[in-house]
Design a binder for these strands. Structure first.
Lengths: 210, 210
DNA sequence: TTTTTTTTCAAACATATGTTTTAATTGAAC
DNA sequence: GTTCAATTAAAACATATGTTTGAAAAAAAA
């Protein structure tokens, strides 16, 4: 078994189980059992359970955040060149679209994005802290751009509206493909494009509310 | 120590710790230590850790849900009497307002409402399942009223918009009073009335979006 | 091929945890 | 005051868990 295989298998297994059971409720024996590797491999390759969580986030969040950052920079640059304010819709789309589209980017991505969707309110300090370390710069960037896009809103109100939007997105991600609390006759779409469009409509309307 | 004291102390302690650390990451020894009671009291009074969680939810969610149900029934009844459709804003207010107002209803309520805010996406199956058992009837009721309020929306789209609204509310609850990811110069209001008003503006705008 | 480094392995270590047991204590009923 | 029921308490039980250890195996380097 090659080095790359062992690490990847552990990461895949951890991602799968963290998404389904949470960090603390997932044991290293469950992860290594599912990955078909030895328990001590976690310590050898990652150092600790917390470091494994960090690696799980980093593996996918760094590329995702790069896309989102590039998108946001493009929004800003385009607006600057055209001598206008950034648009609310394009700013939020720049952030939300790649996030939701991540669901279909490969095996395991669906699980990972579920972790992301609820990370900010995860009861586990460890999860929340690891996530915030990765997301804070991007969050500030989005906030700044929205401040430009909505100059008539106070920063405080904008902050809260952005939290509402992030909450809506996070919950949508967690609920996508799930089937509890379904009213009769409702078969909610779960294709990424439709969901993204609906979510954007919702949050943009809320952000732009006079 | 009276019976009422022991049970109440355990419930208070459990509520406090479940809110801060989550269900699985909170041990019975931590709960009983904080409550100043013996470890075996949990089994004696509640039967199991899961049953304790159920009791924690039930203690406050039953009265909260009663208020919300009464509010929703009043919305429906008033609209019927006036021969009009229920309003989106009054329907959502009927649900959201008592939920956020719960934060200041007494010692421990703030912790409890944090549990509620993230219960639907909690990584712990146990938490999620207990919560859904309590919330499903009310959710359906709210959904039905909103179907009447927004007859031009398909049930599927309405379902998703309601999920976005619930996500926004849940996240707002979890973030209220917290201070991570604060941009410079932002001091977000955390008084319940302001937060409720902002949240309602946001979600009503999103729900009513053409 | 030999030596060195890396990786894997099974067992051990040191706690941690929900549940159960049994006896003692307290409270209620007579 | 005595008896019965309820409650509390400490210890035990049966696992569960992240981390560490030292040897063996595999891979890389010389």
């Amino acid at each position: 078994m090659s080095l790359a295989d062992t690490k990847e298998r552990i990461l895949d297994s951890a991602e799968y189980l963290f998404a389904r059971k949470g960090f603390h409720n997932t044991s290293l024996r469950a992860i290594t059992g599912r990955a078909g590797v030895n328990l001590a491999a976690v310590n050898y390759h990652f150092g600790s359970k917390e470091a494994l969580l960090e690696a799980v986030f980093e593996r996918r969040l760094v590329p995702l955040n790069n896309i989102r950052r590039e998108n946001l920079e493009a929004v800003r640059e385009t607006a600057r060149k055209e001598g206008r304010l950034p648009g609310v819709q394009e700013s939020l789309r720049a952030f939300i679209e790649p996030t939701l589209a991540f669901r279909k980017s490969g095996t395991g991505a669906e699980d990972f994005i579920t972790l992301v969707g609820r990370a900010m309110s995860d009861p586990d300090d460890t999860v929340r802290n690891v996530f915030i370390r990765h997301i804070a710069p991007l969050f500030y960037m989005l906030f700044d751009i929205l401040c430009e896009a909505l100059p008539e809103l106070s920063p405080d109100m904008l902050f809260w509206r952005l939290q509402f939007a992030i909450g809506a997105m996070g919950h949508a991600i967690c609920m996508a493909g799930k089937s509890y609390s379904l009213p009769d006759g409702v078969t909610p779409v779960s294709d990424v494009e439709s969901l993204t469009a609906m979510l954007l409509d919702f949050v943009v309307a809320g952000m732009e509310r006079p």
